[in-house]
Design a protein around this nucleic acid. Structure first.
Lengths: 363, 363
DNA sequence: TTGTAAGCGTTATCAC
DNA sequence: GTGATAACGCTTACAA
């Protein structure tokens, strides 16, 4: 009781006992302000949140004191009281450049809406991954943005009852609303571009890690070849784990084929990096001997030798939109299962007409 | 009062009033568990934290119930009670590939130590930056890791009284302990490598954004030239804002000099990207006509054409170490002002002997 | 070994 | 307009 009385009487020099014990000054609270302003702490709370229920005069006085004390309301206490943390979990593979750009979009949008971001690294190890995801529950995040999941994490995420939005990965079950680009159409455009350049032996170098986005890309490739009346050669459709290293190996295999491709559609810019390396090793010139395409338009794509023809995936915008959608979801507005953004085919130097001697032969 | 009594009597069907009003099931709390386990909630709290003060039997019962309910302790409530959030703020420029790798290291180390990460994007806009930093205060983070700050943010950060560690940026004032590499020595090694290849007209293409790390790199360059008895030509020491675009422009300027350089030390891999582009535009071949070096060994460096000679900066390890150091700091252990990690010169294809006709002439 | 009571810093619901 | 008072979900003396 004596503690509570202390709130009002600023004259009383007797400080809070805990305070005396712990010289490690704890941050000022509304009660500290209340004491100085000669009001009760709820009044301070109201004043600081610009409630109309407090007189302009006291409000000013309170704000002044708060300012002087360098007061910052504890988000913990507020979260506890309101059952809202104004925090969203961001699940991503830290270090992945695509995810990094997405994160930037998410971060900027979150900042504008007063949300903080809890960064959760999508771990390889299932055990750790599980723990990391539970961390979000423990922290009571209001919602979750999934930027680059390990595929296996998604069911776990859905099992918790937290609003969820996905970036660049289709939902596995009924699942969460996703921000996507038209992967299928984009990759079709890529393949059509190559076909237009006279290529017929066009390979597809996929990324096994790429969840469903990858399947759509492959479908687009097939669709383009189909429409052009080009048969699908199974040996020209291969996949790796998505790393440049693996891509290089796999590209070597393609180049060892009896009738090697004259063009390669890579499922990502990272894969293209490895593919081009393989060609350089064999002294094949891009695009003279072989055309290469990427997917994503990561920042380095424009600066390669030659600059990479690829699909611009507006990663930052996707992140921002995902955050925006999450807010809608939290507000109770229903959302379309997918929001699709435009992807743009960016023509650069890594694609050119097929070598003459071959261009007019079918496959 | 009646609410408190409810804790014990599981028989009483009367549910908590709030609960009845809000069908939006709130997550289970220790009180829910307590009721079911026929104990009081402090006992539950103790049991769940493996306190020896609770009998093995009740502990087992409690844990079982917790498991069944899918209980996860609220980090908010815990933080409020303990005055520790087990959260550290990570200030970084999201989307920056170096920072991304650092973040990965930080995230992994944090996970192992039971810390969560609050991601704070280092904004351009001073106003927003300020707010973002205050967000960390409001969330009561236990400490802060600064991975890629805008230079101006540092004073702000120090002004708040939160334990701070820096990655790859010297402290401005007395400041915070930093994890660094030996920038000066590393860049000196780069320049010495070029000198060893017979280069004399070696340019330095800097990055104005790079805080003090950049100054050290430049110093290393100068030191190497000095030791080799090569005079410094001011017109060959230039800087850009660190983006490939700007680097390209600046490189063009270097190439327009009367006596253009035969080699260029770039302050970062990103800068090297732009520099190489400028050369390609002018049909200069790397490394035949001009040698180029980067700094950082970002993931793409090995896959460029030609692969980039650069300095490996162990970004992930730096992040992990920073997190480790922060924990030390939080534990009260004093820390050296700097922890220096080894950087390694990685020789690849972008450097070669200086063109013959020039190599033996001084500058 | 367990229960009681208080406290962490907010917000929310009442009175007055 | 403002003040009491009770949550929010946890931890932590102190009692029993």
């Amino acid at each position: 009781m004596s503690g509570k009385d202390g709130n009002r009487r600023e004259g009383t020099a007797r400080a809070n006992v805990r305070c005396a014990e712990q010289p490690a000054a704890r941050p000022p609270s509304i009660k500290d302000i209340a004491r100085l302003a000669q009001v009760t702490h709820p009044t301070v709370s109201r004043a600081l949140r610009n409630s109309p229920l407090v007189s302009a005069e006291t409000a000013a006085r309170i704000r002044h004191i708060a300012e002087e004390l360098g007061y910052h309301a504890s988000a913990l206490a507020r979260g506890l009281a309101t059952r809202q943390t104004q925090t969203v979990g961001l699940l991503m593979e830290a270090g992945n450049p695509f995810a990094g750009e997405v994160a930037r979009g998410v971060a900027e949008a979150a900042g504008e809406r007063g949300y903080a971001l809890l960064l959760v690294h999508a771990q390889e190890d299932a055990e750790r991954a599980h723990r990391a995801i539970e961390e979000m529950v423990a922290r009571r995040v209001d919602g979750i943005v999934v930027a680059s999941p390990r595929a296996r994490d998604l069911p776990l995420l859905e099992a918790m009852r937290i609003p969820l939005v996905l970036v660049d990965s289709d939902a596995p079950g009924k699942a969460a609303p996703a921000v996507m680009i038209a992967n299928r159409e984009a990759m079709r455009a890529v393949a059509q571009h190559l076909i237009g350049l006279g290529h017929r032996r066009i390979a597809y170098l996929g990324d096994r890690n790429g969840l469903r986005a990858e399947a759509a890309r492959l479908a687009g490739y097939k669709s383009a070849l189909g429409r052009a009346g080009i048969g699908l050669a199974p040996e020209r459709i291969v996949a790796c784990d998505g790393s440049p290293e693996a891509a290089m190996e796999t590209m070597h295999e393609l180049l060892r084929l009896n009738r090697p491709p004259t063009a390669v559609c890579c499922a990502s810019d990272l894969v293209a990096l490895g593919a081009m390396q393989a060609m350089r090793t064999r002294r094949l010139r891009v695009p003279n001997d072989l055309s290469v395409t990427g997917f994503g338009d990561l920042f380095f794509a424009a600066w390669l030798t030659p600059p990479l023809t690829t699909v611009r995936q507006p990663a930052r915008q996707m992140g921002a939109l995902a955050m925006e959608n999450l807010c809608r979801l939290l507000a109770g507005d229903p959302l379309p299962a997918q929001t699709c953004l435009d992807a743009e085919l960016i023509l650069r130097g890594s694609t050119a007409r097929a070598p003459k001697q071959e261009s007019d032969f079918a496959e």
